[in-house]
Design a binder for these strands. Structure first.
Lengths: 339, 339
DNA sequence: GTGAAAGCGCTAACAA
DNA sequence: TTGTTAGCGCTTTCAC
C-alpha cells in the first residue's frame, strides 16, 4: 500500500474535494450520495478526489441536516444473559450489512433505565429494537408511537414484533414430560414484568388442561443462575416430579442445586429449560430445552425495522413474525419416579 | 405523574426555550451547559422552561459544533464469547455514569473489520476501547495516534492498556499442575494474532524452565468451543498429562471431547483454562481456571480513556493497568497419572 | 450578564 | 447537470 497522500491536518470535507475539483460542495454531496444525478465525468473526478483525500463523511453533520442518523438502538435487559448474545450478533450483522450502526444498551432489568434510554434514542437513532421489554404495555405503545420500533419477545398492539412460538413450545415440552410418565409438573416463572413468562404460563395451563395433567406455578424468580437454588428448593418442596423453567439460566442454577442436594436429574426430577443458551449442552447433566433460531430473530427484527424506515414498494410492513421452536432433548431419559 | 405539557410536534430546541423566556438562544445554551456564567434568576427561568418543554439536547448538533460526540466505541473480536460480557457490562456501566454512549462493535475476529471500524469511529466517537485487538502493532499504534484509545489485553508501545497479569497467572497454573505431579504439560495456543496467547506462552516457557518441567506448544486453535475437539485430540496424541489452555471456550470444548473419548478429567488428563467465563463452574467436570476481575477491567479501561479525554488536573494519565489473577480450582483433584 | 453572528459539515430546495 | 442559498441545533467568539 502506498502511503496515502493525506494532509495530516483535519479530516477532509466535501469543501476540500470541491475545491480540488473546481466544483460546488453540493455537487460533491450529490456525486457521493446520489451518483446518478451527476455527470459521469465529474462524478469520477470527485470520487477519485475523495479517495485521494481519504475522505470520510461526517455522520453527525449528515444526521443533523438529513434527520437520519443511520444508527439503530438495541435494548436488552441484561447483556450478561447468554440468550442475548445471538440476538445481538444477529442484529449487529444485519445492521452492518445495511449500513447502520448498532447502539447497544443494557437496560439492567429496569423499566426506568429503559424508558430514559428510549427517550434519548428518539433523537439519536432512526429506530429501536427492544428485546424483552420491562415496560408496561401503555408506556411501550406510547414510545412506539414516537419512534420506529420492533419488539422481540413482547407482543403489544400496534407494535411490530418478533416472537417465539410459545404455544408450540409449551406443547412440545409438556408432551415430552407426559410421555415420560409425569403427571404433576411445575412451571418455574420468570419476572412478573416479563411477558414471555406470562405467555408461557398461559400456554402451559391450556395444554395441561387439554392433556388432563396438573401444572402449578412457582415463583416468580429473577432470570439469573443464582435464582436456581431457590427455584429448585421450591420445586422439590412442592412435590412435583418435573419442571418447565422460564429460562435456561434458572434451569442451570436448578441443576446445580439439585446436584448439591443429591437429587438426581432426571431420575428424581425432570427439568426442561427455555432458550438453549450457551452452556445448555455442556452443563451437568446436559439440559433438555426449547431451542429457537435467535440470531435469525435478530436479523428478522432488523429487517422489519428497516422496512418501517424505508417503506419502498414491494410488500407492506410485516407486523408480527413468529420464530419456530423445537425441543432439544439431552442427557439420559428416564421415566417419572414411580413409573 | 401529570401528563407533560408538551407540544406533540417536533422536539423542543433551545430556540423554543429562548422564545418562551424572552432571551437569546445563546443564553439558553450557556444556562444549560455552563450555568455559572448566567444570572441566577434567568438561569432558573430557563431551566424551568426546559423541563416544561421536555427539552432534550440534540446530540448530533452538539457534536457538530463542539467536536465532541459523547460516544465511545468498544471493539470486541467476538461478542458471543462470554469473556466479553463482563467486560462490556463494565464499560457500559462506567460510560453511562460519565454521560457517554457506548458504541459496541463485534469485529468478527477480523483485522480488516477492526481497521475500518476504527476509521469510522474516528469521526463518530471521542475515543475507543479495543479488546484483544487482531491488528498488528504498527496498525494499532497508528490508529492510536489518530484517536484516544485504550487497549484491553494488548500491550503496544505508547498505547494505554489494561492487561491481565500473565506471568503470575501462568506461574499459578503451572505450579498447581506441578504440585499434582505433572511433569509434561501442553499449552493449547489461541490465534496467532492474539497477543494474549503469545504472552501466555512466553510466560509459561519461562516458568517451566525455572521449574525444570517440559511444556510444549500445541495449536494454534480458534478461540471457539468447537476447536476443543481438535485440541483435545492433539493433547492426547502428544502424550502430555496436563494442559494449560488459551481460554475457557476451548477448554470446555476439550472437556466435552475427552468425555466422549472416555478420557477422564482429571484422572487421565488435567485441564486448566483461562478467563473463568460463564459456564466454567457448571460444566462437566467443573473447570479449573484463571480468574480475573473482568468487569472491573472494563471500568478501568473507561476511566483511563476518560482521563485522556479530560486531562484536568490531578494525576497524570495512567498508561498501563495490570489486573490481578488467581487460580480457581474446581472439581476433584487427583495426582498425575503414574504418581 | 447577555445578545448578535458566525460557523461545525452536510443536505435539500430552488435557480440557472 | 450544476451552482446558490438556506438551514439542521448547537457552541462560541466577540461586542455590548
Amino acid at each position: 500500500m502506498a502511503s496515502p497522500p493525506v494532509s495530516v491536518g483535519r479530516p477532509a470535507t466535501i469543501h476540500d474535494i470541491a475545491a480540488l475539483c473546481g466544483v460546488a460542495p453540493s455537487t460533491v454531496s450529490r456525486a457521493l450520495s446520489t451518483p446518478d444525478r451527476v455527470n459521469v465525468r465529474t462524478r469520477e473526478r470527485i470520487q477519485a478526489a475523495a479517495v485521494e483525500l481519504n475522505y470520510t463523511p461526517n455522520s453527525q453533520a449528515k444526521a443533523l441536516s438529513s434527520g437520519r442518523t443511520a444508527a439503530v438502538g438495541v435494548l436488552v435487559p441484561d447483556i450478561t444473559n447468554p440468550f442475548y448474545f445471538d440476538l445481538i450478533r444477529g442484529t449487529q450483522l444485519q445492521l452492518k450489512a445495511a449500513g447502520y450502526t448498532q447502539l447497544l444498551v443494557d437496560t439492567e432489568e429496569s423499566d426506568e433505565v429503559e424508558a430514559s434510554t428510549l427517550e434519548q434514542l428518539r433523537k439519536s437513532s432512526d429506530g429501536v429494537i427492544v428485546a424483552a421489554s420491562r415496560l408496561n404495555d401503555e408506556s411501550l405503545a406510547a414510545a412506539a408511537a414516537r419512534m420506529p420500533m420492533v419488539t422481540v419477545n413482547r407482543d403489544v398492539d400496534g407494535v411490530p414484533a418478533v416472537i417465539i412460538d410459545t404455544p408450540s413450545a409449551m406443547t412440545q415440552a409438556l408432551d415430552h414430560l407426559i410421555s415420560l410418565g409425569h403427571i404433576s409438573v411445575a412451571y418455574i416463572a420468570g419476572p412478573v414484568v416479563s411477558q414471555s413468562s406470562a405467555r408461557r404460563w398461559a400456554a402451559l395451563t391450556q395444554v395441561a388442561e387439554d392433556r388432563g395433567v396438573q401444572v402449578r406455578n412457582l415463583g416468580p424468580f429473577a432470570p439469573k443462575k443464582q435464582s436456581g437454588a431457590a427455584a429448585a428448593d421450591a420445586a422439590v418442596h412442592s412435590g412435583v416430579t418435573a419442571c418447565i423453567v422460564f429460562n435456561d439460566l434458572i434451569a442451570i442454577g436448578m441443576l446445580q442445586r439439585l446436584r448439591e442436594r443429591g437429587i438426581r436429574v432426571p431420575e428424581d426430577m425432570s427439568i426442561v429449560g427455555c432458550d438453549d443458551i450457551f452452556g445448555a449442552d455442556f452443563c451437568n447433566p446436559p439440559l433438555t430445552t426449547l431451542s429457537s433460531p435467535i440470531e435469525q430473530a435478530g436479523r428478522v427484527a432488523v429487517s422489519m425495522l428497516l422496512a418501517q424506515l424505508n417503506p419502498l414498494g414491494g410488500g407492506g410492513v410485516r407486523s408480527r413474525s413468529v420464530m419456530p421452536t423445537h425441543l432439544t432433548v439431552r442427557g439420559s431419559t428416564t421415566s417419572a419416579p414411580g413409573n
